[in-house]
């Protein structure tokens, strides 16, 4: 492997290594979903594909937006936009933990040298109506991944259960590159004038989006967008039932896009501080209702396993 592709000196090298590892295992390597999401789990390749009986193996990078976590580029660890590497395998294979450890070895984390631990962390997403059991994976006290056996998604029991791995790519890269400030990460693995850092790529965006998310995002427009996305989602769900009978659904994916949209708009409103504590719960509940209805629709499609 050329030096600039080595995961311990190149952010993109680390991503490509993980993709290669999971491709070798038989995953389809997808590209990021082309919408704003809060986490890789929102990608329909996870949320919807986790539902129903059909086997599924996929891996992909997902840019994730957490408007509230922005720190104007001033915090060495917190970002409002970062990358997750997501692996979803249904049904969960018996050796998923071993596979995960091998993937760490592939990016240069030597299990004989480091202290790798599986520490209880039960995952729950109130907006997706989803929960699962698993761990935070620690490397020398640093949480580098989430490991979850999905039990329920979109309010539906997973049968069979999918295993989900989420690697926090920046953290992992900081770890293997031995860097304390995310913006100092070597992005392209080159040296000297050819070197591009994470800061070169994203620092300006962090500053601009933090300003936008906290101070200037158009709350009135966002409230309207939330309502529009919610209405559209319901409309598509309703119209998608073939012949008006609740047996086969023809538009689960477009409807789910609107659910994703509503979720992200809610996150923006939340970061803007215009949603009160009590309203917050109600907004989360509204997104969850959409997610549940989309999950229900998905189960009545071909990929959802409907007969």
């Amino acid at each position: 492997m050329p030096p600039h592709m080595r995961p311990e000196r190149s952010f993109q090298g680390l991503i490509l290594t993980l993709q290669r590892f999971w491709a070798d295992y038989g995953c389809v390597i997808l590209q990021p979903y082309d919408m704003e999401v809060g986490a890789g789990t929102f990608h329909p390749a996870t949320t919807l594909r986790a539902l129903g009986p059909k086997p599924w193996r996929a891996a992909y990078v997902q840019p994730s937006r957490r408007p509230k976590d922005g720190r104007y580029g001033e915090n060495p660890n917190r970002l409002q936009h970062y990358y997750q590497f997501q692996v979803i395998i249904k049904p969960s294979p018996p050796d998923l933990q071993d596979l995960y450890l091998k993937s760490l070895a592939a990016i240069g984390v030597d299990a004989a040298l480091h202290d790798i631990r599986f520490v209880e962390d039960d995952w729950e997403s109130p907006t997706l109506g989803a929960w699962g059991l698993g761990w935070e994976c620690w490397c020398d006290g640093m949480e580098v991944s989430q490991f979850t056996y999905f039990q329920q998604v979109a309010g539906v029991e997973c049968a069979p259960v999918a295993g989900e791995l989420t690697y926090g790519l920046e953290r992992l890269a900081m770890y293997v590159q031995g860097i304390d400030r995310v913006y100092d990460l070597n992005f392209n693995g080159r040296d000297g004038a050819d070197k591009v850092t994470y800061g070169d790529v994203f620092l300006q965006a962090e500053k601009e989006y933090s300003k936008h998310n906290f101070e200037h995002s158009d709350a009135e427009m966002l409230f309207a967008q939330f309502a529009m996305a919610e209405t559209a989602c319901q409309k598509y769900l309703e119209a998608g039932w073939k012949d008006g009978k609740r047996e086969w659904h023809l538009m689960a994916l477009p409807a789910y896009d609107q659910c994703i949209k509503a979720s992200h708009v809610f996150n923006l409103l939340d970061a803007r501080g215009v949603i009160s504590v009590t309203e917050r719960q109600s907004y989360i509940g509204r997104v969850r209702d959409l997610a549940k209805a989309c999950g229900e629709a998905w189960l009545h499609t071909d990929a959802g396993g409907a007969a």
């Binding site: 018996p94 059991l133 056996y149 039990q151 069979p160 259960v161």
Partner: peptide, 23 residues
């Protein structure tokens, strides 16, 4: 306190439940 299903057998509701996959 909380148990889970896993693997191929979790397709059936009769699947064994344990705190984490039992090997």
């Amino acid at each position: 306190p909380k148990s889970m299903r896993w693997g191929e057998r979790s397709a059936k509701s009769s699947a064994l439940q344990w705190v984490r996959p039992l090997h």
